[in-house]
Computed example of a mutant assay.
Amino acid sequence: MDKNASIYVAGHRGLVGSALVRALESQGFGRIVRRTSQELDLRDAQAVRELFEREEIDYVFLAAAKVGGIVANNDYPAEFIRDNLLIQTNVIDAAHRAGVRKLLFLGSTCIYPKMAPQPLREEYLLTGTLEPTNEPYAIAKIAGIKMCQAYNRQYGTRFIPVMPTNLYGPNDNYDPDTSHVLPALIRKFHEAKLLSLPYVTLWGTGTPRREFLHADDLADACLFLMDSYEDDEIVNIGWGRDISIAELAERIKEIVGYGGEIRYDPQRPDGTPRKLVDVSKLEALGWKARIPLEQGLKDTYEWYLQQSAGVPELIGLQGRQG
């Protein structure tokens, strides 16, 4: 990418988008287009088209999406399918109409079939049924991938879809109702430590296995692929190793310094039993993740502490408990 190119990062304040902005700025890209959701509603097709016409955008990283964990997906299925379909349709179509040079669309490994063989290879997409709690989100994301490929075939665009594994890092979502498992665990153990709670209860059995990739590693991979990948077939982005939820909980508990007990509620859903991606395609292209999970967890908790308000947070927690 030309250092003077106009690059639009859709969703620049989120976990992935903010990591992309950090990576672009560190590499000397100065024309980064960013709009908050208050400034631009990506569900509004006309507003999105006007942005592309006004900014003369060359490259697009489509990181904007409605995302969440099991609770959010269960509670808001209509919003997950509607909002994601609108966001990606509007951005992909506007990018084509404006003649952008290249677009990178972020899917997710959670859209592979629930019982797909492990590790997950790119060709397993659409070979089986989806995880029920995640189906609306997954269907929307699959539509986005197929839309990129269809536009490439019909219009000759250069739209590349990638499949990142579970992510974590700065600017993650720590809301107890909508967050993914790793940030949810950080907040849960931190709050239990502040309140000296004797135990923490976690959903499910703790046996599912998940792979985790730091957002800065993902951003580096996305820039690498934007520069070097020209096919329109999906590419997995991951670490290539996984860990059980129980093991993850123990690691986070230790890093946070919580001394209580961990209990599991098997009446709550576990979600997909295992989710590990095959990263051989990406590694063959010349990219490999660099940030170990242990170091990434420590850095992420430090970031969380810096964002926390200490005493006001504890007062708020005490109010909630009462």
Rank of each mutant, 00 (worst) to 15 (best):
S37F: 00
Y168K: 01
L317V: 09
Y151E: 01
D177S: 08
L282D: 04
D220Q: 11
L218M: 03
F212A: 08
S6W: 15
T133H: 12
I92D: 08
P273W: 13
D299G: 01
N74H: 07
P117H: 04
L106P: 00
R268G: 05
R43S: 08
P117T: 09
A63K: 02
Q88T: 14
G11H: 06
D220H: 11
I57R: 03
G204L: 12
V21F: 01
D93S: 02
L285P: 06
K253T: 09
F80R: 05
N171K: 04
T165M: 12
Y301H: 11
T205F: 11
A140Q: 00
H96S: 03
S37I: 02
A150T: 11
E39I: 06
G144H: 03
D2Y: 13
Y304R: 13
S179H: 05
T207Y: 14
F212Y: 15
C110R: 15
T178H: 08
G128R: 09
S196E: 14
S308D: 09
E79C: 04
R101A: 08
G322R: 07
D217H: 04
R54M: 14
A5Y: 00
I243F: 14
V235Q: 07
L297C: 14
H96K: 05
A78F: 11
I142M: 02
A249L: 05
